[in-house]
């Protein structure tokens, strides 16, 4: 049996009356590249937000290395409003803020790039090293942490070198070309020393050539940093090329999962995508 890094169990995310993620269960195993696909508004980003602690799922549980890190059941007003399934199966309430989850070894990028805009490329990555600090505000102010600071800077340089960002390290993040900004976001996520990397549409807005480069880049990053990758993507070439397995959701519900060839020929999936195409 493969060892799973991430396991989501019966996760439902309901906003008021809108069920954005509906009873979703999935697993990501060590070393895999797994994709989450689905039409616009299917609930992919919402699922990521529930995993990384941005939202608290309305119901369900999330495990990281078999340890339950998030668990919830409908409470308060949601008790009456709840439209999902498996109510009552998760009596425990475990909450974690995004920073705690990142510290466990999960790092993410965002669909609409969220860099520290006014800062240099170098500082963007360096900031992600803050969470592994051992210094406190006094030792940091009086530079008693200079060894650690030096190490943080060296590791940042090393990371920038590996990811081909060294030549732009002193540029302001927002002045980089779009593709580079996406790379920088991945570099910043890697600086937190994650085991699991979550990428939300890393190829959004890229041309075919850039997309091919990104495909190679993600593979390289996975191999060099011994990562597990879970990504959301609309570029089907990239998804089919890179994924070990694929999950497909539509209206928040899992409609198919399996190897790329299986997904490509799955009638449900074709229907979901064509259905959207018809609407447009």
């Amino acid at each position: 049996m493969a060892e799973h890094v991430l396991k989501i169990q019966d996760v439902t995310m309901q906003f008021g009356g809108v069920v954005a993620v509906d009873n979703l269960s999935l697993e990501v195993n060590r070393g895999e590249i797994v994709s989450l696909i689905g039409p616009n508004g299917a609930g992919k980003t919402t699922a990521f937000n529930a995993i990384t602690g941005v939202y608290e799922p309305t119901n369900g549980a999330i495990f990281f290395h078999d340890k339950m890190i998030v668990s919830n059941h409908p409470q308060g007003k949601m008790k009456k409003l709840y439209k999902g399934e498996n109510n009552g199966k998760y009596p425990k309430v475990i909450r974690k803020t995004p920073d705690k989850i990142t510290r466990l070894g999960m790092a993410r990028t965002f669909q609409n790039i969220r860099l520290f805009k006014s800062m240099t490329v170098f500082d963007n990555v360096l900031i992600a090293k803050h969470l592994r600090r051992t210094s406190n505000i006094f030792t940091a102010t009086f530079r008693l942490n200079y060894k650690e600071e030096k190490k943080m800077r060296e590791e940042t340089m090393e990371l920038l070198r590996i990811l081909d960002l060294l030549d732009v390290k002193d540029e302001i993040a927002s002045s980089l070309p779009y593709g580079k900004q996406r790379h920088l976001e991945i570099a910043r996520a890697l600086a937190t020393n994650p085991e699991l990397l979550l990428l939300d549409e890393p190829a959004a807005g890229m041309n075919p050539q850039e997309t091919d480069e990104l495909t190679a880049f993600i593979r390289r990053v996975r191999d060099e940093f011994h990562l597990t990758v879970f990504l959301i993507e609309h570029h089907m070439n990239l998804v089919m090329d890179i994924s070990d397995r694929i999950y497909v959701i539509d209206f928040g519900k899992l409609i198919a999962s399996g190897k790329p060839q299986e997904i490509q020929n799955n009638p449900e999936v074709i229907k979901a995508y064509l259905g959207v195409a018809d609407d447009e």
């Binding site: 510290r103 969220r114 860099l115 520290f116 006014s118 800062m119 803050h130 969470l131 910043r188 937190t192």
Partner: peptide, 18 residues
């Protein structure tokens, strides 16, 4: 540095473990 990160983007700062 992390204060400035919070100023620039709170959500990203939190996602970076701050």
């Amino acid at each position: 540095r992390s204060f400035k990160a919070i100023r620039d983007d709170e959500i990203a700062a939190e996602a970076m473990g701050i």
